[in-house]
């Protein structure tokens, strides 16, 4: 807990649904520092200017999907740890497989998420990335 107390992890959540973004932030704003992005493009901009401990992204988004975003991140930031979680209502298994293999996806979670489960996964993913 001391670590938590020392500094809150920065988590970037990308989803084209504003409601999703808001509910996520309401739920986790106490434990984590939450950054929100309405699109993949916006997320890329935030990544450029912030140190992000964990990226959580939706898959089905207009213009750039979650997987495409991961691809973009790998291209832009080849060396950052694989702290990436996908949070999606649905995704094509092929796309997800690609994300795991190529884009260092840590976990895929289906909507709707459970608060405790997601919280534990966030911490687990960050710690796994930091090792």
């Amino acid at each position: 807990m001391s670590a938590v107390a020392q500094r809150k992890y920065n988590i970037l959540y990308v989803d084209d649904e504003l409601s999703n973004l808001r509910v996520f932030k309401s739920t986790f704003r106490r434990e984590f520092n939450i950054l929100l992005a309405e699109s993949a493009a916006e997320a890329v901009e935030l990544l450029k200017t912030n140190k992000i401990d964990l990226l959580i992204t939706d898959q089905m988004m207009p213009e750039m999907t979650g997987v495409e975003l991961l691809h973009e991140i790998k291209k832009l930031f080849p060396n950052i740890p694989p702290n990436r979680v996908m949070l999606s209502g649905y995704a094509q298994p092929d796309d997800i497989d690609l994300a795991f293999e190529e884009y260092r996806l840590y976990k895929f979670i289906s909507k709707p998420w459970d608060e405790d489960q997601l919280k534990n996964l966030i911490i687990e993913a960050i710690e796994a990335g930091n090792e």
Binding site: E17, S19, R30, K111, P112, E115
Partner: peptide, 25 residues
Amino acid sequence: TAGIAHEINNPINFVYAGVNSMVKD
């Protein structure tokens, strides 16, 4: 199904996670 699952899971997510966050708020 793909679309529907996604489309339906999103709003369910608002409701489900929203209720939880409301409890905390």
